[in-house]
Amino acid sequence: MQSNPTADAVGAPPPPKLAMHFASLEVQHHAARLGMWLFLATEILLFAGLFTLYAGYRFLFPEAWAAGSRSLDLTMGTINTIVLITSSFTAAMAVHYAKEAKNKMVVLMFVLTLAMAGAFLVIKGFEYSHKLHVGALPGFRYHYDAIQLPGAPLFFTVYWLSTGLHAFHVIVGMCVLAWITTKAAKNQFSYHNYTAVELGSMYWHLVDLVWIFLFPMLYLV
């Protein structure tokens, strides 16, 4: 399995390295993928804590939650959702091209993904600055005049914590994807060796997946 049947053209991607402790390349890929899925499971449970807090406090303070949700900017939220879904699409395409050893397309797809991730953060930044301006801040800093209901500060605490944690994941994901992009630019991925692209893109999809749930929870209901 070490030899690469497609590595005939000049400048073809290098064959993947087999670490000495694995039995074969298949096992190595399998291990990497399973490890990534386990890591994603921990990420899901990390957000689970916040989702539980959301659910608990929403149950206790339905009015504050309805008011808080309506005060968020639905247009910006929707645009952000579309941007993030599209970035997830390009990330998926990057995996497709990596399998076909089209490293230039991989670079292009990841650059698009990174650009959209940047756009997501910029839009989020606008939303945050608006919240800062009106005083919809977590905890005792809360001084938003429009909503004075019991539990309203909690809604914004949950809002800031969950979107903040998500934004942190977006930034981490951007770093990971940027690093993989540089590897793709060096023409490293091929039919036999695209694990890095696949795992990076899986992480990005998870960021998207979390947002798919955060969006209706915070903005819509």
């Binding site: 997830s88 998926a92 893109s201 999809h205 998207d208 997946l209 798919i212 749930f213 969006f215 209706p216």
Partner: peptide, 16 residues
């Protein structure tokens, strides 16, 4: 809303 989100999430998980 949660049902739609679940459907979307399933699509992302299954295919992306």
């Amino acid at each position: 809303a949660l049902t739609i989100a679940t459907v979307k999430g399933t699509l992302v998980a299954l295919y992306f």
